[in-house]
Design a binder for these strands. Sequence first.
DNA 1: TCGAAAGTGTCAGTCGCTGACACTAGGCTC
DNA 2: GAGCCTAGTGTCAGCGACTGACACTTTCGA
Lengths: 220, 220
Amino acid sequence: MAGLRERKKQRTRDALVRTAHELFVAQGYERTTIDEIAAAVDVSQRTFFRYFASKEEVAFALLRTVEERFFTAVRERPADEAPLQVLGNALGTAWNHIGDAIQEVVPLEVYMRMWRVIETTPALVAAHLRHSTEQEERLAAEIARRAGVDPEHDPRPRVLVAAFAGVLQLAGRRWAAGRDITVEGARRVFREHLDRFGPALAEDWRPAGGSGEDTPACRG
Amino acid sequence: MAGLRERKKQRTRDALVRTAHELFVAQGYERTTIDEIAAAVDVSQRTFFRYFASKEEVAFALLRTVEERFFTAVRERPADEAPLQVLGNALGTAWNHIGDAIQEVVPLEVYMRMWRVIETTPALVAAHLRHSTEQEERLAAEIARRAGVDPEHDPRPRVLVAAFAGVLQLAGRRWAAGRDITVEGARRVFREHLDRFGPALAEDWRPAGGSGEDTPACRG
DNA sequence: TCGAAAGTGTCAGTCGCTGACACTAGGCTC
DNA sequence: GAGCCTAGTGTCAGCGACTGACACTTTCGA
């Protein structure tokens, strides 16, 4: 177990994330000041900025945690799984722990409501889009590596990841808009949305080799 | 001709855009302050904010002008043109005036260099992504309207626009990275990139009617 | 020509964010 | 257990983006 110092730091960080999320959800992102968050946690504004580089960062803190869990799950999938299966199954196993990880910091309902706050705050939408494109790039590279294709010339990893990310985004919105706050509900919503994929993106790519231009997944 | 007041306003606005662009290009976006821009144009900081709601807005001012010209050109294309032809031809005719419109404010080279500034400034990348998604939505709606399909259920307008926007983005980067500063050079680069589209997206959609789910442009 | 309205400058203030420096408290050695 | 090292914190002072209030000037229309 970590020392007292470490545990104290973790508590402060969690308190900042929790308080920030509660305030953002209750009164909006822009109407909440850093001073307000810091005061509620009883630390100085300067301390806030030692934990988070910006106001935006604390707003995305939980999303980042979830993201990392998903990424780890992707890396741990067996090597012979087809690309779309990797993504779907990684999401499935990640959900086993995500719920608990979130609820260690905030109630699931707060996390859920934060989705809408992000969606309806222009500055957060912009930050989210930028981060998402970076993550899609990263995910596509990992998928390409696993499938043994060249991500520079084969467009399929990016296309798959873009489609997958789009579905996730939509599913998340639907979940956040609905009434089922439970983790099971979230898992179900995501599962249902993913199942709408056609077979094209799910096929095994390895026979295609590194020069995907010859056999792209989608060509009219 | 507009009154003295109007002309004066236009001159101030152009001077702000020009000075801002020159400073952004010369020393970077973040290293340029509003006070600096305002001082160079010899107006107060307050006046700057009466012309532009934010620092970002002045950085995108020229791009917005170009965008609007393109949009107008799209609306003016004949009704019987196929979707991709509409986009390509609108771009072609828009280029007839875009060059002059830009050069009324800044030399073309400054406009070109501003592309790279936007690309390499995280805050501007984020703002640009957000704005782009909104514009793609708008453009897809217009394309769907022209083609007589339902944008809610037929994915083709969005797919086409997304692909078109991606190609434009890439072409713009290539142009800004190259040496040919002329409008003709830009037109050529964009034309070349657009010509790489396959025939699938160029097909006429009207036979498909409003329920595009039955005949999507891209399905594996 | 005179008055309404548009445009501008000044000032004072908020908020996000940063550097510098002094202080406190956790963790280590002896 | 005393004492040192240093990670973590608070305080303070300041920058830059942005806003509201108010007074002054300039244009425009009756």
